[in-house]
Amino acid sequence: MGGNLLTNYGEAVAMILFGIGCSNLLLQKNLIKKIIGLNIMDTAIYLFLAEKGYIANKMAPIITNGVQDASAYINPIPSGLVLTGIVVSVSVTALMLSLTIRLYQRYHTLDMDEISVMIKKEGK
């Protein structure tokens, strides 16, 4: 058990980062900190994927020196998934930031709780 954890330290770090990001996304009041939490969470998943796809002592999946044998290279699919995931998380982050700008222009604060209180007072 402990030995496994040591050899797979990359995955373990990814899990810890995922937890940090997740709790920041939920618990922080500041919207920008929430978004940072979101990004940490997403990046942790990509780190995990990259760790899973890497096979020790093998090359990046681009044909080098004419070696066509698949066993010489690492698994390319996780890298592809990471790229797709990055595109998704960039667009989502952009959307969140634009929402934050709208809220800041309207209420002059980034604190989610304060914004809620102001909206309740406003009525609509």
């Binding site: 809220l103 309207r106 406003e122």
Partner: peptide, 10 residues
């Protein structure tokens, strides 16, 4: 674009 809807969207 109301305050409520933007907050709800967030």
């Amino acid at each position: 674009q109301w305050g409520r809807t933007i907050e709800a969207a967030t």
